[in-house]
């Protein structure tokens, strides 16, 4: 099977501060992969580099494999079929819920398709339908997270990058979110997920990477990762309290 997304030798720096040092990762069609790591490890930065939002100093990003996208402006990369659920929701808080969804399908010119997807989203997230006319900033945190996911799905992406989708949610909602990740995946969307909630993430993922200080220090199946020393040191140990 050929990889859907393939990142090789990625280096990223913010001015003089080097943050990512030669990261390799890939994800195949139909997979859910998790990118784990402590605060400040550089997870968000990797996602932003893939999306073209921060400039990679070095390395290759292929999406799909064989097609180099590094250096393309973000809107062109998005058009290739990558969706993004940013860290901390980041819904457009002054736009209505409905407008947020429309923004998700910004480059879909077929109005019928757009309406059809909106209906799908309403089915997937009934709460969103009841709030559609409301300003997105007035939604609760959990509702905003749903909206952010729905917005990303509106472009019918083949790959979804999710940055800490369970952040700041109540335990019950956390379970719902991971359930949702599965559902979305079953509809044919590959997912690269950044998570603090390692246990839950490892339950849904079929492969995981462990990031520490901008280096990949481990990768493998969830069972392998769970048993590795690296994760206890970097991550779970601190969380398990």
């Amino acid at each position: 099977m050929s990889a859907l997304l393939k990142v090789t030798g990625l280096h990223v720096a913010y001015g003089p501060a080097r943050v990512i040092h030669g990261v390799d990762l890939e994800i195949n069609s139909g997979e859910i992969r998790a990118l784990l790591g402590a605060n400040g490890a550089g997870k968000t930065t990797i996602l932003k580099a893939i999306l073209g939002l921060v400039r990679a100093a070095q390395g290759a990003i292929e999406f799909p494999e064989g097609r180099l996208v590094r250096g393309l402006p973000p809107h062109k990369i998005a058009a290739l079929g990558i969706g993004w659920v940013p860290e901390g929701r980041q819904v457009f808080s002054t736009l209505s819920v409905y407008d947020n969804l429309l923004m998700g399908a910004f480059n879909e010119h077929d109005q019928q398709k757009v309406q059809q997807r909106i209906e799908e989203m309403y089915k997937l997230f009934p709460i969103i339908e009841t709030r559609r006319g409301q300003i997105a900033g007035s939604l609760s945190g959990g509702e905003q997270q749903m909206l952010a996911i729905a917005r990303a799905l509106m472009s019918a992406p083949t790959l979804l990058l999710m940055d800490e989708p369970s952040l700041g949610l109540a335990p019950r909602l956390v379970r719902d979110v991971f359930e949702l990740v599965r559902t979305i995946n079953q509809r044919g969307v590959s997912i690269l997920m950044v998570e603090q909630n390692a246990r839950q993430a490892l339950r849904v993922a079929n492969w995981a990477y462990l990031l520490e200080g901008g280096h990949i220090v481990g990768s493998g199946t969830p069972t392998q990762i769970e048993q590795s020393d690296a994760i206890k040191r970097a991550y779970i140990g601190r969380q398990a309290s």
Partner: peptide, 13 residues
């Protein structure tokens, strides 16, 4: 409001 998100949704800034 959020130019990065807008760009990642396909808006040419």
């Amino acid at each position: 409001e959020k130019h990065e998100v807008a760009q990642a949704l396909g808006v040419d800034i």
